[in-house]
Design a protein around this nucleic acid. Structure first.
Length: 419
DNA sequence: TTCTGTCAAGCGATC
DNA sequence: GATCGCTTGACAGAA
């Protein structure tokens, strides 16, 4: 089983994707952006390899306006073929399975022909991107069924009809997913019967929208399994949790580990890949991978701790001490307790005092080298935080600048500036 | 330098 | 029929 995350990373240097506005999309500017984004992808792949993350969704925005031939006229696949080859080699070398997922705006069953032809162009773009990497058919392209338009039967028929007219290369990668308001898992399954497309089961969507709420996740995962053939690779699923107090269907900030482990224990023998849909992306992927690793070592937790420690200290001295104590036994691997404590800390809002405490720890990395003027500024900003919580952002921005100026990579690679 | 509004996409609910 | 909300991170111009 592989566990992965979509599109972007939190707290990993040089992995940020760039884009632009249509009106600024000159050929030259697009070239710069594509070059930048492919380099960022390479850095993401390397990060994933280092952290044993074998599943990753590539952002649809990686080639800006790729499916709009009037805006992006570049032959990017050919022009950047060297970078694509290198990326493909890297992906294969590390055994990473990549995928893509056009968003809610790519709709092939619309009654509007213009919408459909743009959607087809978009699918062609995604397919060309994956083909350019040289990855096999197990690298999938995930799509929702689309709209209902007041007549679901007709809408489904249009989906099936358009599907059959798609390029073979697209069809070889295309997978359909249940959504949370229009097409339930049972409806997607019946569309799969008519198209042959494999099905991705999404647990949260199904919890929100299904005609059969009594059926379990395992029931549907088993049911859907037969839509996956050998050439499609391992069955893929999407997993997410509801963010409390948000709109139904909102993805949680982080994967709550106890809830995940309950799910994992039910599905671990079903031979699936799990794509986590969650706001904190790679952080939850690493969390879930370490939590399900029976041969994990304390060293891996110590590495995690080095990234989280100031985030925790900023919120709770008590939890900070508890985690230090927890990691004392070098032969143990208390991974679940560790993440429970991290989650408990992140749930808290930093008080002025605890935030200042963490800030002064971080300041400690540079205070010897700092110029008088910088020391004064730190003092002034700290005093402001003591009076007014809203000033914390200003103080942390200043600290980040200082860490960059004095090359304090230990702090910069931590998550202190990400929370 | 920091903040706020805008972009880009299509559906569907609401007035 | 027109408008807004949904979603998302980053752009882009204002302050």
């Amino acid at each position: 089983m592989s566990i992965g995350y979509p599109c972007i990373t939190i707290g990993v240097e040089n992995t940020q994707q760039k884009t632009c506005r249509k009106r600024n999309a000159t050929e030259e500017h697009l070239r710069t952006l594509i070059d930048h984004n492919l380099t960022a992808l390479k850095n993401i792949i390397e990060f994933n390899a280092e952290h044993n993350i074998k599943l990753f969704r590539i952002s649809s925005d990686i080639i800006p306006f790729a499916s709009d031939k009037e805006v992006n006229t570049l032959n990017w696949s050919k022009e950047f073929s060297n970078q694509f080859e290198e990326l493909g080699r890297l992906i294969k070398k590390h055994g990473i399975r990549v995928s893509m997922h056009p968003g809610q705006y790519t709709v092939i069953n619309s009654p509007d022909e213009g919408v459909v032809s743009r959607a087809i162009a978009d699918l062609n773009y995604h397919t060309l991107f994956l083909d350019s990497l040289g990855v096999d058919e197990a690298s999938k392209l995930i799509l929702h069924v689309g709209g209902v338009y007041g007549d679901k039967k007709a809408a489904v028929n249009r989906f099936v009809q358009t599907y059959h007219g798609l390029n073979e290369r697209v069809k070889n990668r295309l997978v359909i997913e249940n959504d949370d308001r229009s097409y339930s898992i049972e409806e997607v399954l019946s569309i799969s019967e008519r198209t042959g497309a494999p099905v991705v089961y999404d647990n949260l969507h199904s919890a929100i929208y299904t005609s059969d709420p009594d059926k379990s996740d395992t029931y549907w995962i088993n049911k859907v399994k037969s839509t996956w053939e050998e050439k499609d690779g391992r069955q893929k699923t999407h997993y997410s949790q509801q963010q409390f107090n948000n709109r139904t269907g909102s993805h949680s900030k982080t994967i709550r580990i106890d809830e995940f482990m309950e799910y994992y224990n039910e599905v671990k023998n079903l031979n699936i890949d799990i794509m986590l849909e969650v706001k904190d992306k790679n952080l939850s992927a690493v969390k879930c991978i370490l939590s399900t690793n029976e041969n994990g070592t304390i060293k891996e937790l110590e590495e995690e701790w080095s990234r989280y420690k100031y985030v925790v200290l900023e919120r709770s001295q008590k939890i900070y001490q508890s985690i230090r104590l927890l990691l004392k036994d070098k032969n143990a691997y208390p991974v679940i307790q560790f993440y429970r404590l991290i989650e408990a800390a992140i749930d808290q809002i930093p008080s002025n005092n605890s935030a200042l405490n963490a800030a002064s720890h971080v300041w400690g990395y540079v205070k010897k080298e700092a110029k008088e003027k910088e020391k004064t500024k730190f003092k002034r900003l700290s005093e402001a935080v003591a009076k007014e919580e809203s000033e914390l952002k200003r103080l942390k921005n200043f600290l980040k600048q200082m860490m960059e100026k004095y090359d304090q990579h230990y702090v910069l690679e931590s998550l202190y500036f990400e929370f």
